[in-house]
Design a protein around this nucleic acid. Structure first.
Length: 477
DNA sequence: GTCGGTAATC
C-alpha cells in the first residue's frame, strides 16, 4: 500500500448509524432516459446535410418529424448515397442514449433501405438496449423480426434476449430462452449467459435458483468467472444477506482462478455502507487495499454516500479532501451525492454551497442534481427556491426526465399549488416524458389533500386509460 | 453479450 493511502480505520470518528436501507424496488416500465427531444424545430434536413456536424445531424434525426422526412427522402435516388452514414449514426446515438422508441423507429427505417444488410450484431445491440429500458415485449417482437429475416441468431443475440426477459422479471421466459439455446448447437450458453441469468435471479430475490444454476454450469463444464462471483456477491449484498455474501467471497478466493477486483471491493464496501455498517465497510476497504486493490471514483462516491447517510460529515469531508489531494476529479455523481446528503439532512446552506461549487468547477448539473435540490427545498417549505430551480431548468438544455417531474410535481402538490402541478403535468408531455405510476400517485394524493376528490378520481381513470394504450408496435415486418 | 456509484411517490 502506498504511504499516502486513505486508511479508513484510522479515520474512525463517531459511528452512530443503524438506518435500514430500502431494497431495490422493481422498476416501472419507464425507460431510464426516455426520448428527450430538444424543443427547437429540427429545421430542413435536406439542405446542407453534409455540412452539419455529426452531433447536429443525429439530433435532427432524433425527432419524429425528421424521421418521417428521411422516410420520404429515402425514395429519392439523389439521397440514397447519403443515408447509410446518417441513418447508422443516428441509430448508434439512439442506442447509446437508451432512447428505445427512437432507436426502433430508426431501425424500422433502416430495414427499408435498399442497402440494408441484416446483421445479428445490430439486433444484439438493440436487444441489450431494450433490456436496459425494461421492454421485454419489444425485445420479443424484435427477435421475431430477426427470425423473419432469415438470420440465424448467435449466442450474443440469445443472451441479449434472455437478459431482456430476465431484467424485467420474466424469469420463466429467460429460462425457456436458456433451454432454446441448449438445443441449438452453435448457441450453447456460456459463462456470460449464466452470469446474466444469476444477476436477474438476484434482482428478483430468487436466491433459491442460484445453487441450481451453479450446478448446471458445473455439469456443463462452464467455470465461474470473476464477474459471476461479483454478481452473486452483489446480489447477496443488496439483499443484506451478509453471511452468504462473505461465504461467496471465500469461495471466490479459494477458487484461485478468480481474484477479487475493484468491482468486488466496491460491491462489499457498498453493501456494508448502504446498510449503515460503517465499521465493516471500513474493515473491508482496508482489507482490499492490503490485497493491493486500488479504489476508483466509484469507490469514493460509495464512501461519500455511506458516510453521508450515517451523518458522518467529517469522514465524508476526509474522502473529498483525499480525492482532491490525489487528483481524483469529482464527477457529476460525486457532487450529486454530496448535494443529496446535505439536502436530506435539511442543511440547505451546505447544499447550496456545494451546488455553487459544482457550477464553479464547470460540472454541469443534471436532472438528478435538480431532483435533490427541489426535494430539499420542498421539504423545508422553500417553494420560492423551487420556482427558481424551475426557471433555471427551463432556460437550460438539461434533459429532464420523469423522476424530475415527479419530484417537482410533488413539491408543488405539497405547497398546495394545484395549478402549477397541472402545468407541469402538461409540460411532461411536451418534453416527451411519460407519466408513470408515481406521477399519478403523487398528483392524486395532492388532490385529495386539497379536498379535490373529483379531480383525484378523474385522474385515476386517466391513469387506467393510459395503461391500456401501451404496447404499441414500433417496427413492422 | 456479463458485475460496482447519484434523484422521484408514501
Amino acid at each position: 500500500m502506498e504511504p499516502n493511502a486513505l486508511t479508513l480505520t484510522n479515520l474512525r470518528l463517531s459511528t452512530t448509524c443503524s438506518t435500514k436501507f430500502p431494497r431495490d424496488q422493481n422498476q416501472t416500465n419507464t425507460p431510464k432516459s426516455y426520448a428527450q427531444i430538444p424543443k427547437r424545430s429540427p429545421g430542413p434536413v435536406s439542405k446542407g446535410l453534409q455540412k452539419d456536424s455529426k452531433k447536429d445531424l443525429s439530433r435532427i434525426l432524433r425527432t419524429d418529424a425528421a424521421i418521417k422526412g428521411i422516410a420520404r427522402k429515402a425514395n429519392s435516388r439523389k439521397y440514397t448515397q447519403l443515408w447509410p452514414k446518417a441513418v447508422l449514426e443516428a441509430l448508434d446515438e439512439a442506442i447509446r442514449e437508451n432512447q428505445w422508441q427512437t432507436a426502433l423507429k430508426i431501425f424500422g427505417l433502416l430495414r427499408q433501405q435498399h442497402w440494408y444488410d441484416a446483421r445479428c450484431q445490430t439486433y444484439t445491440r438493440l436487444l441489450v438496449m431494450l433490456g436496459k429500458c425494461r421492454q421485454p415485449e419489444q425485445a420479443s417482437l424484435l427477435f421475431e423480426i430477426l427470425l423473419s429475416e432469415g438470420l440465424r441468431p448467435t449466442v450474443d443475440v440469445y443472451t441479449a434476449l434472455l437478459s431482456a426477459y430476465g431484467q424485467s422479471g420474466f424469469l420463466d421466459k429467460a429460462l425457456s430462452t436458456l433451454d432454446d439455446m441448449k438445443s441449438v448447437s452453435e448457441c450453447k450458453p456460456d459463462v456470460y449467459t449464466y452470469s446474466i441469468l444469476i444477476n436477474c435471479c438476484t434482482k428478483f430475490c430468487r436466491f433459491d435458483l442460484i445453487g441450481q444454476i451453479l450446478a448446471e454450469m458445473s455439469f456443463l463444464g462452464i467455470e465461474c468467472s470473476t464477474v459471476t462471483y461479483n454478481t452473486i456477491i452483489d446480489g447477496y449484498g443488496k439483499a443484506e444477506m451478509f453471511e452468504l455474501m462473505e461465504n461467496t467471497l471465500t469461495d471466490m478466493i479459494e477458487s484461485e482462478t478468480c481474484l477479487p477486483d475493484v468491482f468486488t471491493l466496491n460491491t462489499l464496501v457498498g453493501a456494508y455502507g448502504n446498510s449503515g455498517q460503517i465499521e465493516k465497510m471500513e474493515k473491508w476497504y482496508d482489507e482490499f487495499r492490503l490485497m493491493g486493490l486500488k479504489p476508483d471514483i466509484k469507490t469514493f462516491n460509495i464512501l461519500i454516500k455511506s458516510y453521508g447517510k450515517a451523518g458522518m460529515y467529517e469522514k465524508m469531508r476526509s474522502v473529498t479532501d483525499y480525492m482532491e489531494k490525489r487528483f481524483f476529479s469529482p464527477t457529476t455523481v460525486t457532487f450529486n451525492t454530496v448535494i443529496d446528503v446535505f439536502g436530506k439532512a435539511g442543511n440547505i446552506e451546505r447544499m447550496d454551497a456545494y451546488f455553487k461549487k459544482m457550477k464553479h468547477q464547470g460540472i454541469k448539473p443534471n436532472s438528478i442534481t435538480y431532483c435533490s435540490l427541489v426535494r430539499a427545498y420542498s421539504k423545508v417549505g422553500l417553494i420560492t427556491k423551487v420556482d427558481s430551480i424551475l426557471r433555471q431548468v427551463e432556460n437550460s438544455d438539461v434533459i429532464l426526465d420523469t423522476p424530475f417531474f415527479n419530484c417537482i410535481i410533488s413539491a408543488y402538490g405539497q405547497a398546495g399549488d394545484v395549478e402549477k402541478m397541472r402545468e407541469l403535468f402538461l409540460e411532461m408531455k411536451e418534453r416527451e416524458c411519460k407519466p408513470d405510476n408515481i406521477t399519478f400517485a403523487t398528483m392524486i394524493q395532492a388532490y385529495h389533500a386539497q379536498g379535490m376528490t373529483e379531480a383525484a378520481e378523474k385522474l385515476a381513470n386517466k391513469m387506467i386509460a393510459t395503461k391500456k394504450s401501451t404496447g404499441t408496435r414500433l417496427i413492422g415486418h
